[in-house]
Design a protein around this nucleic acid. Structure first.
Length: 523
RNA sequence: GGCUCGGUAGCUCAGCUGGUUAGAGCGUGGGAUUCAUAACCCCAAGGUCGGGAGUUCAAGUCUCCCCCGAGCCA
């Protein structure tokens, strides 16, 4: 059984922003971690391309909707490439086969008796693609989120009988672990407890969408169609569309990672749709928080959006990944603070981790013929750094399973701090001046080099680039976390054995593995 | 308005089922050191734990009220 995880399918109304990058980076870390632990992974991301908002955006740009979607989705694809995201699926909901998936899915839902005609009347926010049920008689209602005028709609369309699933959804949502982090569960529970209402799944007179079979003039509501992208994404190239088959190739998903704003769609509507279609439910829906910048909401109006492309160019993958994953508790809202960003990157990555290897490698090369010194006593599992390394690895493993990147990152950092302390305590540079202490010096340096190797290993899911550079400096092969494991235990698991660093191995000339960030001016 | 979360050192946060002098990282100040990316290591200052009342031998930790912030639902 593969491990299937998804990012949201990003809405192509605009170029990618930092929020979607954050989600995607987090998923990438999870995917890599799972692979390293022996799981075959299906890592899905993609674009959600239908809806009125897209149509209007395209119009405003003087493009056909398809041309607009092609352009934006290409930007996403390109951006994920440059961030080296290890997704192996990229689904676009304008894909022809996706249309077929939607049709088949709808047929099942209809066969379950869950599709009824109804009259939908109310204020509609095009930006949300959602009916707002509060302002009944308002003259000039505005969307609270988008602060844009709502449009009055009065149309007959198709409804999904969500109300029939009240009890099942209640039970599901109460389930330990279905909604994560746990702090968000209550909110959804309250919503469900308020009574589930049928929701409309079609729109009339909206040409940019998937036509509803048997209901001329209707196209599917974006959300209905978009969620199904998770299924379409599982199709192999050229494979004929058959929902039943998907069950054997990655459905149900283990994990949907989403922003907290779309939790309800994923934790309530989506499971009900799946139940209706007779498909299995995902195990976990994880709603992470939002990013602000220097305490303020990022937005075009404020002109303070942090562009992920710029961030990548100026700071690099490792720096940004480290900051986002190590400093922001995954699930909580986070604030991007530039000073803190560079402080953490410089302290943790350049100084603590990078410099540790640099100083040790320099000494080893100078005093031990350019190679890893003999291990001697340092090869023992009882060596203090051996204990520190295995403890760190255990903490790390546990934390990653909980998606607690922060604790995972901290445990690696602790290991490096411990090794730096060890060096200072034993001061090999001093001992080296005493005749007869070379053996001891070699052992100490060996222990620290071996610790650095562990740091490189543990960093692989979080910072694959830095991990490779670290290992390279130790004459080790990089860890491949981007492709499915071929062996069990995996090379990564096997490498986590104290003493794995081979004495007498020639060490390359030390090169700083992590440059300090010197940011002049705001990003 | 109802509900749900938060409000702990300058900053970001830990503090489990109430129990010795409230912790970490960053930032700041000082010291030590020279192997190293002006890096590393050590030490220090800094908090009436949002405010008030209560329960208790004992409350950051429980109860109530209030203030502030965020979110969900109306």
């Amino acid at each position: 059984m593969p491990y299937t995880l998804t990012t949201p399918l990003y809405y192509v109304n605009d170029r990618p922003h930092l929020g979607s990058t954050y989600t995607t980076l987090a998923c990438d870390a999870i995917a890599r971690f799972q692979r390293l632990n022996g799981q075959a992974v299906i890592f899905i991301t993609g674009c959600d391309e239908h809806g009125l908002k897209i149509m209007r955006t395209a119009e405003a740009a003087g493009l056909t909707p398809q041309a607009h979607c092609d352009a934006i989705s290409e930007r996403y694809r390109d951006l994920w490439d440059r961030w080296q995201i290890s997704n192996n699926r990229f689904i676009r909901t304008s894909d022809r086969r996706h249309h077929q998936v939607v049709e088949q899915f709808f047929a099942r839902v209809e066969a379950s008796g869950d599709v009824v005609e109804g009259r939908q009347q109310g204020w509609y926010c095009v930006a949300c693609e959602e009916f707002k049920d509060d302002p009944h008689e308002s003259d000039d209602p505005e969307c609270a989120i988008h602060r844009r005028p709502l449009e009055w709609r009065d149309e007959v369309n198709l409804f999904f009988r969500l109300s029939r699933y009240q009890q099942q959804i209640e039970a599901l949502v109460a389930q330990e672990g279905f909604i994560a982090p746990a702090s968000r569960r209550r909110e959804v529970q309250n919503f469900v407890a308020g009574g589930l209402k049928d929701f409309s799944i079609s729109r009339v007179d909206l040409p940019w969408g998937i036509p509803v079979p048997g209901h001329a003039g209707h196209t599917f509501y974006v959300w209905f169609d978009a969620l199904l992208g998770y299924l379409s994404a599982l199709l192999e190239p050229g494979q004929p569309v058959e929902l039943e088959a998907l069950v054997r190739q990655g459905w149900p998903a283990q994990l949907h990672v989403i922003g907290k704003d779309i939790l309800r769609f994923h934790a309530v509507f989506w499971p009900a749709m799946l139940l209706s279609a007779g498909l299995e439910l995902p195990s976990t829906v994880f709603g992470h928080g939002f990013l602000t910048r220097e305490g303020q909401k990022m937005g075009k109006s404020l002109g303070n959006v942090l562009d992920p492309e710029l961030l990548l160019e100026r700071c690099g993958r490792d720096a940004v990944r480290w900051y986002l994953l190590r400093d922001i508790p995954f699930g909580d809202d986070g604030d991007f603070q530039q000073q803190r960003f560079s402080d953490l990157v410089n302290n943790d990555l350049a100084n603590t981790i990078g410099n540790l290897l640099n100083r040790t490698s320099t000494m080893a090369r100078k005093w031990f013929d350019g190679a890893v010194p003999p291990a001697g006593e340092a090869a023992l599992a009882s060596h203090p750094l051996a204990l520190a390394a295995t403890t760190a690895a255990e903490r790390y493993q546990q934390a990653m399973i909980r998606l607690d990147f922060r604790t995972a990152a901290e445990s690696v950092l602790q290991l490096a701090i411990g090794a730096n302390g060890f060096l200072n305590d034993n001061a090999p540079w001093k001992r080296m001046k005493t005749a007869g202490d070379e053996v001891r010096v070699g052992e100490d340096l060996y222990a620290v080099l071996e610790t650095s190797r562990w740091v490189g290993l543990l960093l692989a899911p979080l910072l694959p680039d830095l991990s490779s550079r670290l290992l390279e400096q130790l004459a080790q092969a990089p860890i491949d976390s981007a492709s499915d494991p071929l062996a069990s235990p995996t090379p990564w698991q096997q490498a986590q054995r104290w003493g794995g660093l081979e004495p007498a191995l020639a060490l390359p000339e030390p090169v700083p593995v992590m440059q300090r960030l010197e940011l002049d001016g705001p990003l």
